[in-house]
Structure formats: structure tokens, C-alpha cells
């Protein structure tokens, strides 16, 4: 029986694969099954980061051309989706991870250790954990640097960081050198990463456009902890 072809086909081929799929794939899925995946609307409803509003103030003419509705939740949703798609298409995730591990002093360098609940949203489908860090991790990038820094960096990274090995992305800019729709969307996406965390507003001393307070954030984190356990 062990030498028959159907055994090899069924036990080794199908059986062991399904076993591995159950143990390594379905088990983690079942553990998180009760948590609802957040839609784009859910994400936007948590508040629009200050940086998105600032983009509109900094480049009023270009912004209104690319996002005619102004810095509203619907524009922000569009920007997040487009920014995420560019992040995937350009292969950003091959050189930048999106997870903080509890080891190697990563929490000191970037901030709070990643929590599973942070990944239960449409923009992490498939998840963008990453496997290599040529550049730094980005999941705590929100408000760490200014919009201007990111825009200059995308145009030519070595202008901002001389040792950078990141490529130039001139196709994120229009003929006049202003960020185009892609550029603004990607900056909005990067500046959103980690903006859901309580420590976010204190990086720069002012909160996001939505009403958020330190007390509210701490309560939010507490709820997240309770849900996550």
C-alpha cells in the first residue's frame, strides 16, 4: 500500500499538504476569525491624519486638481487605496518592512511592538510584513517626518539622505515638480502608517484633524488590548 502510486498521490501529495495548510494556515485564521476586517471606511472614520490636511494647505491648486473634494474622508480613502497600490506595485515592500518585532531593540528605534489587530484591514490584504529591510521599517512612520521631507525624498533620496540607496521616483511628480496624484497618495499612505497609535499626535505636538485627545487615545489603546487578548 505504501508503495502504490495512489498512496503517494493522496497521502504525500494531497494529505500532507492539507495538513500543513490546516496547521500553518487555517489555525491562525481561525484564531483571528472573530475579529472583523476593517474596511476602508472604517479606517478613514478613525480620523484623517493631520498630514493629509497639510498636503491640501501646502499645494492648494494641485491638491484640488487631484482630489476635487478637498481633504475630506472620501478623498482620504481614495488616497489611501491608491497609495497602498503604488506601494505594492513599486515593490516598496521588498525593502521596507511593516512590523515591529519585540526583539533587537526595535521598539526603541521605531515604537510600539506590532499587534495583530493592527493588520486586520483591507490595506493589509495580503499583509505587508516584509522580509527585508534595506530601508527602515515603515509601520510607525506617521508624522515622524514632514510631508516636505517625504516629497523631496521621493524626488531624489540622496538629496535628503546622502547614503540612501533608494531609487528616484520622478513619476510621482508633475512637470512643474509638484507631487502628482500618485505622489500625494503615497505620501498620505506613508503618513497614515501608525497614525492609529496613541503616541502618534505627540510626535509633533498637535493632533490629527479629527478630534482626538490623549485621554481618548489611551482609552482606545486599552480597548484594543482588551479586544486583542
Amino acid at each position: 500500500m505504501l508503495e502504490s502510486k495512489s498512496t503517494v498521490f493522496l497521502v504525500a501529495g494531497v494529505g500532507f499538504f492539507v495538513l500543513a495548510f490546516v496547521v500553518m494556515g487555517l489555525l491562525p485564521w481561525m484564531i483571528y476569525m472573530d475579529q472583523e476586517e476593517e474596511t476602508l471606511e472604517d479606517l478613514v472614520a478613525k480620523g484623517i491624519p493631520h498630514e493629509f490636511v497639510e498636503l491640501a494647505e501646502r499645494f492648494p491648486e494641485q491638491f484640488s486638481r487631484h482630489f476635487p473634494n478637498g481633504p475630506t474622508p472620501s478623498s482620504f480613502g481614495d488616497a489611501l487605496q491608491l497609495g497602498h497600490d503604488i506601494y505594492v506595485a513599486e515593490g516598496c515592500w521588498h525593502c521596507h518592512s511593516q512590523q515591529i518585532r519585540p526583539v533587537s531593540n526595535e521598539d526603541l528605534r521605531w515604537g510600539a511592538v506590532s499587534h495583530p489587530s493592527e493588520y486586520h484591514n483591507v490595506l493589509q490584504r495580503p499583509v505587508l510584513f516584509g522580509t527585508r529591510r534595506v530601508g527602515p521599517d515603515l509601520i510607525r512612520e506617521a508624522a515622524r517626518r514632514s510631508n516636505d521631507w517625504h516629497i523631496a525624498h521621493f524626488y531624489e533620496p540622496t538629496n535628503v539622505v546622502p547614503t540612501s540607496v533608494m531609487p528616484n521616483y520622478p513619476w510621482f511628480f508633475d512637470e512643474d515638480g509638484y507631487p502628482n496624484r500618485k505622489g500625494m497618495a503615497l505620501v498620505a499612505y506613508i503618513q497614515w502608517l501608525g497614525s492609529w497609535l496613541p503616541e502618534y499626535p505627540y510626535y509633533q505636538g498637535e493632533g490629527p484633524a479629527g478630534a482626538r485627545s490623549r485621554e481618548g487615545d489611551e482609552a482606545a489603546l486599552e480597548t484594543r488590548r482588551m479586544e486583542g487578548s
Binding site: F17, A20, F21, M24, G25, L27, P28, W29, I31, Y32, E37, P116, Y119, H120, N121, V122, Q124, R125, P126, V127, F129, T131
Partner: peptide, 20 residues
């Protein structure tokens, strides 16, 4: 990972895929 399982669990599937 694209259509059925999102988030952390999709990481497990992607790991399985890279490996397999």
C-alpha cells in the same frame, strides 16, 4: 491571501507559500 484571508493570518499563508 488576496481574496480569502487578510491581515496577520495572510502572513501565515504567505510564509507557507514562499516556503512551499
Amino acid at each position: 491571501p488576496e481574496f480569502f484571508v487578510g491581515g496577520t493570518a495572510s502572513g501565515a499563508i504567505i510564509g507557507l507559500f514562499i516556503h512551499d
